[in-house]
């Protein structure tokens, strides 16, 4: 494997959890709900997936537990913002704080346990293509799943009737409600989907990426996922692009250090964050303000009587 291939491979794996979590949040936001609790759902996914994987010695059960934990956290959020029409920003932040604390309690007995790595899945023939072969056809299952998920979310939102319903509810819940569309039900499932994705991303971190549990191990990745949704202007394809760009910025700054440029490491560490700001800025300049943002995003829905 050449250095170039190796770096690309690392970038893809570093980007995958961001991609998965951001896709889930994208669906939630497209339905008009802003859930800032991605970090909390993700870290709960990590803790629960690892606990289940170690307890039952099964990666599959671990993944299921991670998704379930994320979805349960999301259900709590849904109860608040849909059931009680509570402030979405506040509820999302509360979810993050709760998740960070609760995951620490759940994970505590599993500190120090370890899991074996998951073998990469080699797709025959295709993986022999130079450069892209190794990159795209010899990855762990999560990487394939994340790409399939991107396509599915894109198809669902743009090509299905149900996706159209979800988008129109996100665009204007008052008129959607007037048309008889089930605002609450659609939003509930969209929030749950977002939570399950965040949980899956957490499971990836705990079971594949680091392969052990440590408190607060998501280290701000949930927030990056939120940024990616805005960066992508709420379009799934662009979430994929954005995730890979951010992953590349994170990984390449480390390579820049190893290549001995002599730039302070703090400057290089700041690059991914500055790049995100610049990307958001360029995007806004090109497309005008608030492009693609669902019209009802973050507004509590209380039907007129």
């Amino acid at each position: 494997m050449t250095t170039f291939e190796a770096i690309l491979l690392t970038i893809v794996t570093a980007s995958t959890p961001l991609l998965i979590a951001a896709l889930g949040e994208l669906v939630t936001e497209r339905s008009g709900v802003l859930n800032l609790g991605v970090e909390g759902m993700m870290v709960m996914g990590a803790a629960c997936s690892f606990a289940a994987a170690v307890t039952f010695d099964s990666t599959l059960l671990g993944v299921a537990a991670g998704m379930l934990a994320g979805a349960l956290m999301a259900a709590l959020f849904a109860l608040l913002v849909l059931g009680f029409a509570a402030n979405q920003t506040g509820s999302g932040l509360a979810l993050t704080i709760l998740g960070l604390g609760l995951s620490g309690l759940i994970g505590a007995p599993f500190v120090g346990a370890r899991r074996d790595p998951i073998a990469p899945v080699d797709i025959p023939v295709l993986s022999d293509i130079p450069i892209v072969g190794r990159l795209f056809f010899e990855q762990d299952l999560f990487v394939y799943a994340s790409i399939v998920l991107t396509v599915l979310v894109g198809l669902y939102l743009m090509r299905t009737r149900s996706g159209l319903t979800l988008r129109s509810i996100g665009e204007n819940h008052t008129s959607a409600n007037a048309l008889g569309l089930p605002v609450w039900r659609v939003r509930f499932w969209a929030i749950l989907f977002g939570g399950a994705c965040a949980g899956l991303a957490g499971a990836y971190l705990a079971l594949v990426y680091t392969r052990f549990w440590s408190p607060g191990m998501t280290a701000g990745r949930g927030w990056i996922a939120l940024a990616l949704v805005v960066f992508a202007a709420w379009r799934p394809g662009w979430v994929l692009v954005g995730a890979y760009i951010f992953g590349a910025a994170t990984v390449l700054q480390l390579h820049a250090q190893a290549a001995q440029f002599g730039v302070p490491s703090q400057v290089l560490s700041a690059v991914p964050y500055l790049a995100t700001i610049v990307a958001l800025l360029l995007l806004s300049i090109r497309h005008g303000r608030a492009i693609g943002a669902p019209g009802s995003l973050g507004v509590p829905f209380v039907p007129d009587r």
Binding site: G40, L80, L95, L98, G99, L100, G101, G104, A108
Partner: peptide, 14 residues
């Protein structure tokens, strides 16, 4: 454990 404090803050806010 310390995590309990954080979890409590989250619950309180919710």
């Amino acid at each position: 454990p310390l995590d309990l404090t954080q979890a409590f803050q989250g619950i309180l806010l919710l």
